[in-house]
Amino acid sequence: MSAKHYFLGIDIGSTTSKCVIVDDKNNIVGKSLKTGGAGTKSPEEVVQESLNQAQLSSKDVEISCATGYGRKLINWTDYELSELSCHAIGGKYLFPGVRTIIDIGGQDAKVLKLDEHGSMTKFIMNDKCAAGTGRFLDMMANAFGGKSSDLSSYDEKSESIAQISSTCSVFAESEVISKLASGESLPNIVAGVHESVVDRTVSLVKRAGIVEPVAMTGGVTLNTSLVKRLEKRLDVTIHTSPIAQYNGALGAALYAKSKFEE
């Protein structure tokens, strides 16, 4: 390949939109993430921002692929692929040799099993409720007037774990409020919230069966305290990446590239 070619992947989730542009050497030349998923302006904006970053125009994009729950709402991409397949492709690239990928997104959690060649052989998704997902953490942070990005640092200060027993987000929210009212420290409550997400994730991972190496993707990977708790409970090292949040979009871009190579 002499002239450069560019491939765009867009992942329109329930709470965020992400876009990644790769060149024909798999270098990420542009990427963008915005809150606001399906039905907002964010999908358009992340595409424009990624193009700007890469100093490209939409005409320079050879092939594009959309993924994520909101992908049906746009019709300009050349391909679409389910988010699980995109996560498998992205995960294989970010974490070569990975066999288990845990992805905790805005409103779902999933575990993907890959074979030695990086092909997805099995996947498990959470039940149809927000417990154990990013949305659950947002709601819990809201309950004490904080942001989910603050949760990790609160947990670092915890001395013990306040038990959050409700698996239903709505009940858990009132449990958090009543624990606060009864004088429990915020860090301990956050530790309890994290443990409840870990509980859910552990059962999901165990249902899929864990094979190392294990990687984690999705916005929740930014919460390092939670990742540490999960590592401890699963007794494995969990690989993460600073761009793990872009994994779905990256997988879509790489899929677009593979279509070009075909």
Binding site: Y69, L81, E83, L84, M125, K128
Partner: peptide
């Protein structure tokens, strides 16, 4: 969710 699962399974 069933849609995502079936789509992935088809893939």
């Amino acid at each position: 969710q069933a849609n995502t699962k079936l789509e992935t399974f088809a893939e």
